[in-house]
Design a protein around this nucleic acid. Structure first.
Lengths: 234, 234
DNA sequence: ATAACTTGTAGTCATATTGACTATAAGATT
DNA sequence: AATCTTATAGTCAATATGACTACAAGTTAT
């Protein structure tokens, strides 16, 4: 059902409203974030969160998708709004309020193709990121805190892990997000009791130790738990 | 530390950016929401969430406070941002993105003094609210869902209950928010174990049945739990 | 080939928590 | 005095938790 509204419905940008995206990834047991290098403008050659301006004729969610895709080539991922950041002086040259979005993705699934205002795009280990321009450090911290809280009442991993994964990989993910160490047998017991995982009846290959069983998420249970919410104290 | 930035730093409004506030209250065992009647404009005489436009020289948080105070007289309450709502057609005459805030308050603490663009201000029982203009129904629903989720990992009640309250009042609050019935002895046991409540060693007066003990929140524990978060499955 | 090492997986156990109750207390009202 | 209503204490079986131990199944080193 397309909706049309007459006034100022153009693809001109709204001067004072931008979008910034935090895309989390998980790779080699580390939590990653996708950043872009600016090709020009006031922060030329600096790494920052992918973002840009909203236009009059697009929903803000659509704007986040478009910008992320144009800047990095990443698409078809689930973006969720975090919140707006609107300090008067957060942007140096004029008043710009930004709406932050975040997403979870598998870095290996994407070939990064920098474009639009981005001269480069790259996954960074989250703990090694600092001194981002504007208030991007604050936004990133906010996003990470949200993620830390989120993993306690919603299943997570579906968008971050390969389709088939071991219990240790899942545990590593939780440990990377929460920045803690968890007890292996207890983690396993807790996860298995949720009926969230289906055994693939396959073992991992190419590891120099006893091969672990591979699991995949039961999408039905996953979605149900995501809707209902649960309580997961680690 | 005042901050000054040169361009477009004026008290002119940002045409395409508004604020809407959901103020929750608790009164007579019911969850309430503060609405205002519009004194003019395109929804003259209709009840809606208190809100208005942001100006170039104020932070968005400050804007929310200002608008709420100007419209209803309510002030000195803790506002927290929910998120932005930015469908292209959410506002009829032009493109306006709104940032929603919510707060918890004690209705009895405030004398409502409608002003600015509001001709009236009133507390409504949440379950009786419907057909708000724009996307305010959606925003309200979103806010309530957030509150429902929030009570499960943060203490709540400090801003909603009178200073001294009974365990049943606290339980009524949870029941009103969550729209469920809870078991009295179990609720009591769970709450008491948190060390969140301090007995006032006083009984309620003027009730036509056995008077219950009065409690107040232990602010230290309350704030600590609010920071740390906890897990509360009812 | 065997030992040493690494990770996987099963299981133990004391303690704490939960949910569903029952029972009794302390008033107020009829 | 009987009958309400709400307060508050306690029971109990079932389940969950945290901190472990033990053993399995492979790889790599000697």
């Amino acid at each position: 059902m397309p909706k049309e509204k007459a006034p100022n419905l153009s693809s001109e940008i709204i001067e004072d409203l931008s979008i910034d995206c935090i895309v989390f990834g998980f790779q080699k047991s580390e939590l990653k974030v996708l950043l872009v290098k600016h090709g020009g403008g006031i922060i030329k050659d600096r790494w920052a969160l992918p973002g840009g301006f909203v236009t009059y004729n697009e929903n803000i969610d659509a704007s986040a998708y478009r910008l992320l895709n144009d800047l990095t080539g990443v698409k078809e991922l689930y973006l969720e709004q975090l919140q707006a950041f609107g300090e008067v002086d957060r942007y140096p040259t004029k008043r710009v309020i930004t709406i932050a979005y975040y997403a979870l993705a598998r870095p290996d699934n994407y070939e990064l193709t920098p474009g639009f205002t981005a001269s480069d795009a790259k996954w960074f280990t989250i703990t090694e990121i600092s001194n981002l321009p504007y208030d991007h450090d604050e936004i990133l911290k906010f996003a990470w805190n949200r993620l830390k809280r989120k993993v306690k009442y919603e299943p997570i991993g579906f968008n971050l892990l390969p389709e088939k994964f071991t219990l240790l990989q899942l545990q590593d993910l939780y440990e990377a997000i929460l920045e803690t160490k968890l007890d292996k047998p207890n983690f396993r017991r807790k996860i298995m009791k949720m009926n969230l995982l289906i055994s693939c009846n396959e073992k991992q290959v190419g590891v120099s130790h006893r091969a672990a069983n591979l699991y995949r998420f039961d999408k039905q249970v996953y979605d149900r738990l995501k809707d209902e919410g649960f309580i997961f104290e680690f």
